Measured scan of single mutants.
Amino acid sequence: RALPCPAHVVFRYQAGREDELTITEGEWLEVIEEGDADEWVKARNQHGEVGFVPERYLNFPD
């Protein structure tokens, strides 16, 4: 997929490290980079905060 792209959060995730982003179910993010580890992506939330989130917690519109 082309980046950046929108993504809808389907599961809540609490950041466990400083470089991760806490996300809430129902929130929209902008995915800006593929992650440095499998199944992680770097995203920006509506407040401009950036961090890594688990890709499987997101839904990408067609």
Rank of each mutant, 00 (worst) to 15 (best):
R1Q: 06
R1E: 05
R1C: 04
R1F: 14
R1M: 04
A2M: 15
A2V: 15
A2S: 15
L3A: 02
L3M: 10
L3S: 08
P4Q: 04
C5W: 05
C5V: 05
C5G: 05
C5Y: 08
C5M: 03
C5I: 05
C5T: 04
P6N: 03
P6R: 11
P6W: 06
A7G: 06
A7I: 00
A7Q: 01
H8Y: 05
H8M: 07
V9R: 01
V9K: 03
V10F: 05
V10I: 12
V10P: 00
V10S: 10
V10T: 09
V10W: 07
F11Q: 10
F11P: 02
F11T: 14
Y13H: 10
Y13N: 05
Y13G: 05
Y13P: 02
Q14R: 09
Q14A: 09
Q14Y: 07
Q14W: 04
Q14E: 12
Q14G: 05
A15L: 02
A15D: 03
A15Q: 07
A15T: 02
G16E: 15
R17H: 14
R17D: 09
R17Q: 10
R17M: 10
R17I: 04
E18V: 09
E18I: 05
E18Y: 07
E18G: 11
E18P: 11
E18F: 07
D19V: 15
D19W: 05
D19M: 10
D19H: 12
E20M: 04
E20F: 06
E20T: 06
E20D: 06
L21W: 03
L21G: 01
L21K: 00
L21I: 04
L21C: 00
L21Q: 00
L21R: 00
L21Y: 00
L21N: 00
L21H: 02
L21E: 02
T22I: 01
T22N: 15
T22A: 08
T22R: 04
T22L: 02
T22V: 01
T22K: 02
I23N: 00
I23S: 02
I23W: 03
T24E: 15
T24Q: 14
T24H: 14
T24S: 11
T24Y: 09
E25T: 14
E25Q: 07
E25D: 12
E25P: 11
E25Y: 15
G26F: 01
G26L: 02
G26A: 04
G26C: 02
G26M: 02
E27Y: 01
E27F: 01
E27W: 01
E27V: 01
W28K: 13
W28S: 12
W28A: 13
L29M: 04
L29K: 00
E30K: 06
E30A: 05
E30G: 01
E30R: 04
E30I: 06
V31M: 04
V31I: 12
V31R: 02
V31Q: 00
I32R: 01
I32E: 04
I32L: 11
I32V: 11
E33Y: 03
E33W: 03
E33I: 02
E34L: 12
E34A: 13
E34C: 13
E34I: 09
G35R: 11
G35T: 14
G35S: 11
G35P: 05
G35C: 08
D36F: 13
D36K: 15
A37T: 13
A37S: 15
A37I: 12
A37Y: 07
A37C: 15
A37H: 13
D38S: 13
D38E: 15
D38V: 11
D38H: 13
D38A: 14
E39F: 14
E39P: 08
E39S: 13
E39Q: 12
E39Y: 07
V41D: 01
V41A: 04
V41G: 02
K42V: 10
A43D: 01
R44F: 02
R44Q: 07
N45F: 01
N45D: 03
N45V: 00
N45E: 00
Q46A: 14
Q46P: 06
Q46W: 07
H47Q: 12
H47D: 13
G48R: 05
G48Y: 04
E49D: 10
E49W: 06
E49C: 12
E49T: 11
E49G: 08
E49N: 14
V50F: 06
V50G: 03
V50M: 10
V50I: 07
V50N: 02
V50W: 05
G51I: 00
G51L: 07
G51T: 02
G51A: 02
G51S: 01
F52E: 06
F52C: 08
F52A: 07
F52M: 12
V53L: 03
V53W: 00
V53I: 12
P54Y: 09
P54M: 13
P54T: 01
P54C: 13
P54W: 10
E55A: 12
E55Q: 09
E55S: 11
R56V: 10
R56H: 10
R56L: 10
R56G: 10
Y57R: 05
Y57F: 13
L58T: 03
L58F: 01
L58S: 03
L58H: 00
L58V: 07
N59D: 14
N59H: 13
N59F: 10
N59P: 00
F60V: 09
F60E: 03
F60Y: 12
P61V: 13
D62L: 09
D62F: 05
D62N: 08
D62R: 06
D62W: 05
